[in-house]
């Protein structure tokens, strides 16, 4: 099974005076051309670090220490700085979480779009303007010609995120890595942007790695989903499959915790305890301290990946295939 992006055994650590802690601890991930993969997990589970590791935008004290990042067959861990630069923003684009801080406040939108084009190909000024206007129009920004001459502070948060997405689209990338791009936005803007991204991905055949903690987004957007916990992917597969028939107790816990499953006034379900700190992960399976299906084996070894076609999970005592949660979990 090979895709556009194949991550194998990725391990990214952060060096501290006390030692190197793995934020990403042996991640395997595949994204095929044109598909939307949602990477879901709690804060601190390593989702964003996985996203940034993919294009090697990890700054010291962080370091990618193991694994392969095969993009279109080429291992990006072996790529030179110039090869990476030429790839970033061109074949792999990114959208960040906070639209208020991703655009440079002292440069016009037009200049920030133009530099994204000229970094990768030679273009006349007229062409640059035309392409920028088209990209802004595509993400639903009215009067794009005027907007090009404006500065970020003249845009609302939602509009700025659209601009960031427009910038990501400029060079028709094969892959867009979106790191919780709608988390900072209100719900109506969020669903507009989700809808637009989905349409764009279909039209342009761009694959998307969408990092989120919101299962509602996963249900709405994803073709496939990967659930991350404590630096590892604990379960992955086609989105309906995973959401309807979770195998890993953590996935099941996440699904039960989502607000759609409870009636008004009822207590929300929660997974007991907190995610372990990066420097205090339990031996064996890192989820065992919060798991209600724990067996003695859990504290001894970390379960291996069990694969069944596109479906994979890592658990010694998986949730039995019962239709208990199917259909009613999410709207």
């Amino acid at each position: 099974m090979t895709g556009l992006l194949d991550i194998r055994g990725l391990r990214t650590v952060f060096h501290t005076p006390e030692g190197a802690w793995a934020a990403v601890d042996g991640v395997d991930l595949t994204i095929r051309r044109g598909e939307v993969l949602c990477l879901v997990g709690e804060s601190g589970s390593g989702k964003s670090v996985t996203g940034f590791s993919t294009v090697r935008l990890i700054d010291p004290p962080g370091e990618i220490v193991e694994g392969e990042i095969l993009f279109d067959g080429k291992d990006l861990r072996q790529a030179s700085d110039e090869e990476l630069r030429a790839l970033r923003g061109n074949r792999i684009a990114m959208v960040f979480q906070d639209p208020l801080s991703t655009l440079n406040p002292v440069l016009t939108i037009g200049e920030q779009m133009a530099e994204a084009i000229t970094a990768h190909r030679r273009c006349t000024k007229a062409q640059i303007t035309e392409e920028s206007v088209r990209a802004l129009a595509r993400v639903g920004i009215p009067s794009p010609e005027v907007r090009l001459r404006q500065y970020p502070h003249e845009f609302s948060g939602g509009m700025r995120q659209r601009v960031a997405i427009a910038i990501a689209l400029l060079n028709s990338p094969d892959l867009i890595i979106a790191d919780e791009p709608t988390t900072a936005l209100d719900v109506t803007i969020q669903s507009q942007i989700l809808y637009e991204v989905q349409t764009l991905a279909r039209e342009t055949g761009t694959a998307i790695l969408w990092i989120t903690h919101d299962l509602a987004i996963v249900a709405e957007l994803a073709d496939r989903v990967a659930v991350m916990y404590a630096g590892q992917i604990v379960e992955s597969g086609a989105v309906d499959d995973v959401l309807d028939r979770p195998c890993h107790p953590y996935t099941l816990g996440l699904l039960k915790s989502s607000t759609g499953t409870v009636r008004p006034g009822e207590r929300l379900h929660q997974i007991d305890g907190n995610a372990p700190r990066i420097d205090a992960r339990p031996s064996g399976c890192p989820f065992r301290t919060r798991c209600d299906r724990v067996v003695p084996l859990c504290s001894e070894t970390y379960p291996l990946r069990q694969e069944n076609g596109d479906r994979a999970f890592r658990c010694h005592n998986p949730v039995p295939a019962a239709p208990a949660t199917s259909g009613e979990v999410l709207p």
């Binding site: 970033r88 440079n104 406040p105 440069l107």
Partner: peptide, 20 residues
Amino acid sequence: DYVKFARAKGISRRRIVRRH
């Protein structure tokens, strides 16, 4: 973030220093 975003756009280090 805007410097990291500029790097994610593939802008050269030289230009990031001078413009951003």
